[in-house]
Design a protein around this nucleic acid. Sequence first.
DNA 1: TGCGTATTAAACAAATCAGTTGTATAGTTG
DNA 2: CAACTATACAACTGATTTGTTTAATACGCA
Lengths: 112, 112
Amino acid sequence: MTLPHPLPDDLVELIARRFRAIAEPMRIRLLDHLRDGEATVGELSEAIDASQQNVSKHLAVLADAGVLGRRKDGNHVYYRIVDEGVLSLCEGVCGSLRRQLKGLSALVDLGA
Amino acid sequence: MTLPHPLPDDLVELIARRFRAIAEPMRIRLLDHLRDGEATVGELSEAIDASQQNVSKHLAVLADAGVLGRRKDGNHVYYRIVDEGVLSLCEGVCGSLRRQLKGLSALVDLGA
DNA sequence: TGCGTATTAAACAAATCAGTTGTATAGTTG
DNA sequence: CAACTATACAACTGATTTGTTTAATACGCA
């Protein structure tokens, strides 16, 4: 209950924007890979089989949102997770999904 | 670290879908109002100054995602939060936003 | 019972708007 | 010059929100 109530309109917009930054399959896959530590655009591009330009753009979105940080080393740019909170968010979502599916399977079992 | 790694493609899609269900200003405002307890479509419609039809649709999106539950009482339908996890998600996002803004203001202070 | 009213949901269309992707190119660094 | 990354532009798609209309259900009252 650390949230203001009611939520001011501007804050509502910020929250929605942050959620939207994460609500994209390729970006979630990128975040998943970055759990192992920092990586370059090329490495990520090859890992998830997407074009260099596209990966670069998605990384920029996450960096603009403050989720990722950049580090330049020679020719390469290393991206890393700086807001560990996103991982908690994903875990929270997965937890909800699990509880939900467990409830559904319980219903199916009842019918057996 | 209760997450599988790497994330299967289907799970990635489910996660993205869940985030997208929340990533909408009006739906966040609805969730904010429902923190006070269950409410009818009409009450919510008046509270956030939106049409009955539109509110009904947004509530359906959240209910389909498993975030909200419905209870019918006579003419009215009461919606309530059944997945308390969403509130944690919003709090997590707000925490990130706070940390971020604090960092930025610190930068500004350095220049003073 | 029958009619009118209130509440909610669904169907349909429309528009809009955002967001993703591809192609080509520029900028940097070794 | 070669390798790596970012940007500009276009295009397209596709998703999503909203409005309008209508259906469905339940209540009250005669």
